[in-house]
Write a protein that binds this DNA or RNA. Structure first.
Lengths: 289, 289
DNA sequence: CGAGGCGTTCAGAAATGATGAATTTAATTT
DNA sequence: AAATTAAATTCATCATTTCTGAACGCCTCG
């Protein structure tokens, strides 16, 4: 049994699909299949049930998965310790941004990193809260900015409370008083499938919102609202600027604050690169250590 | 980095000697050397300082060794879990005996094992407390019987308190009253370098005992005492039987009790084979679970 | 100063793992 | 009912890694 067996085991368990797992591991299905098979023989235990839909863990597989993850974590821990106190950090960090680069001080951040951690190469990736979370969880991304609550397994640094407001097309209910029911029954342009604003609105409107169009891109949502396709959310400052041009209206009843946080996987807190990045994030947003 | 790198790392750290490590790993020095080298490159850290005497850990190596051991333990944990609740246990157990097979109910034990755990093959190894402890620690032996205190890292089942007495040649101080000083200054035939009886005697006689001959074998010590080479310890029952033949005398002033225990490595308590063996030991000595 | 340990280097040999095409299976679609 | 799709697996071949045994260099010890 070697580490690559465990890695394959864990990834196949996550993806429930050998083909995808092979892709994620930069390998091919036959190779990963052989890993699993070898592991099963060595442990003398069936880890997965195969079907044409994919591979799902057996009960014993679920138990063993936890142990396998612990073992891999332990190995990562060792590698991290080795990298600690090394003269220069060398590595790569993929950072997810759920807002514009300007809003998240991207340029300043890059400057700081290349100044303080010249060995770390940085990749900024424009994305959305939901995608950022899943990509961090699968290891495709190392950290990022997200809105809303912090899921289990993540560690967060709260950057600020963002003022969010609702915007509507200029002519939306222009002649009557806008009721909560109006808002609840309207069509919304949400940000993504699992939108952190959704929960807030459920609390406020007592119902889930209906949405047929999603866009994680601020400017796109703004454009869609302008074209009368529905309501959406946007940062207050942006909304106010746009209101001046006169194509939208702000619905102040539905304003709220939403925490913006920088998050990484808790299990990676010992990674020296993650440590360094967290320090830089703290510097960037002027929060004390 | 794979498991075999860590295994080599740990064993070399233990033996401080690449050649011995290679033997213990059933491999060759160049192979193990390459493992260490690869690991050092991958971790970008010197793990050992090489000298003509052998290999000793660097400071960082000492830190990393702990992590490496944890990782390997974690993997063993997983394998153990996999083997748990398996229909039939299959494996091998090397058992160290510090007394005669009869005294430790060897035959009955073998019977029980082959009855209750037919998949486990057993190897009995006549040895001494000290050797058994070191061999268990290095993994060459899986468990065994020892006298005296239980060292760190071991888990023990106390079997009984053995009555030990001192025997002397027939003509030893036959005409005078034997004083403690006489005993302390006499030549002793001890059992081994690190003799568990030594401590007891230190307490009783207030000094360490001098010994030029060691033998872990009861009958050999008996023979040497008979030939007037010095004093020694032996189980009371054996001594009394021998006294009848008239070649030795018992020195009842120096009798004491010594715990006899079955021990295994604590870290191996989760090993299903170890679990099974412990159960059998409990049955053998009629101790409740 | 020579013998014996010890770790390392090196070239060839052996073992292992990866790959891509073909196969199998079963669910889904036409 | 047939065709299609998506999934895992098998297999022969290829590429890579790893192991081995001999030779080497270094140091210590008698």
């Amino acid at each position: 049994m070697e580490f690559y067996h465990l890695r394959s085991f864990v990834v196949v368990a996550e993806t429930k699909n050998l083909t995808q797992a092979a892709k994620r591991l930069c390998s091919t299905p036959p190779a990963i299949s052989a890993h699993i098979k070898t592991l099963e023989q060595e442990l003398d235990t069936a880890l997965f049930v195969r079907s044409t839909k994919g591979m799902t863990l057996t009960e014993k597989g679920q138990l063993l998965l936890i142990k396998a993850q612990k073992t891999l974590d332990s190995a990562v821990d060792m590698v991290n310790l080795a990298a600690d106190n090394q003269d220069e950090l060398i590595g790569h960090f993929s950072l997810g941004l759920n807002q514009s680069i300007q809003a998240l001080k991207g340029a300043e951040f890059i400057d700081n990193i290349s100044e303080n951690c010249p060995g770390i190469s940085l990749q900024l990736q424009q994305s959305s809260t939901g995608k950022i979370m899943t990509e961090i969880q699968t290891g495709q991304m190392d950290g990022g900015y997200i809105y809303g609550e912090i899921p289990d397994g993540f560690t967060a640094i709260e950057i600020k409370q963002e003022n969010i407001t609702t915007i509507a097309p200029k002519n939306f209910a222009s002649e009557k008083i806008i009721t909560q029911l109006d808002l609840a029954q309207s069509m919304w342009i949400t940000m993504e499938q699992y939108c952190p604003f959704d929960k807030v609105l459920k609390q406020k409107l007592g119902t889930s919102i209906q949405s047929k169009v999603q866009s994680a891109h601020d400017q796109s949502r703004l454009e869609l609202v302008k074209n009368g396709l529905g309501l959406s959310f946007i940062e207050l400052a942006v909304a106010e600027k746009e209101q001046l041009t006169g194509d939208i209206q702000i619905i102040p009843q539905l304003s709220f604050q939403m925490p913006l946080s920088f998050v990484v996987l808790t299990k990676r807190l010992n990674d020296p690169i993650v440590k360094a990045l967290i320090q830089e994030i703290n510097i960037l947003w002027e929060a004390p250590l």
